[in-house]
Design a protein around this nucleic acid. Structure first.
Lengths: 105, 105
DNA sequence: AACAAATACTTCGTGATACGATGTATTACA
DNA sequence: TGTAATACATCGTATCACGAAGTATTTGTT
């Protein structure tokens, strides 16, 4: 998938991945894999960004003697998903414009 | 609209804008306006990029004593639109993932 | 016991790119 | 006369996905 097209989707995918249950980095990557692939460096950059903008909170917990950082979505994060739903309408209209008069629908 | 979300759409929008008829910068911006807004600096950067990657060709023509650069889509450009149609399927599946278990569909 | 693979997080540098700001020049209109 | 519209161009900046490389532990295999 085109890297530019991913840009607008990754943040919201990560938020969706932790929406129903707190999760941690490694698990998020595996959960998203069937849907969209992203590297660790990409994910941790995104998580940091989402934390800084108040979309999620972090809590460290030990699991089998190994550190895990669990991410929890905030109200802001939930609102971001809502915004995405609104943006989606614009995306659809852009798609229609691009495909207008295309032969193979 | 979120700037990141635009990134994957702008190139293909510009290609779509010149697909059925050769066009020039200022007209492209006006034609795209109802669908997606972009500044002149953005557009000319995109046109340059699309030219460099063989998606379109340029021809200069005089119109009312003013120079105009007309852009013409190539086979590569048409193929890019086709690719976008394929990518679209992935985008749809990502949207479904994000909206999964959302309350307001 | 030794080694590989999986788990888990972190940092650095790079390339791509949308955009505001700014500039140049001509035509149309009030 | 002056302002808006038309038309193209360049520069610098901020954002961001990613590969590469690193650290450290646990689990599975031979």
């Amino acid at each position: 998938m085109d890297i530019q097209l991913k840009r607008g989707l990754l943040d919201v995918c990560v938020l969706a991945a932790i929406k129903n249950e707190d999760s941690y980095g490694y698990k998020i990557i595996k959960d998203l894999k069937p849907c969209i692939e992203l590297s660790e460096s990409t994910l941790y950059t995104i998580l940091k960004r989402l934390e800084n903008s108040g979309m999620l909170t972090v809590r460290s917990a030990e699991h089998d003697g190994r550190l895990r950082k669990y991410y929890h979505i905030t109200q802001n994060g939930l609102r971001r998903i809502d915004e995405f739903r609104d943006e989606w309408k614009e995306v659809i209209s852009i798609y229609r414009f691009v495909m207008k008069e295309e032969q193979y629908e």
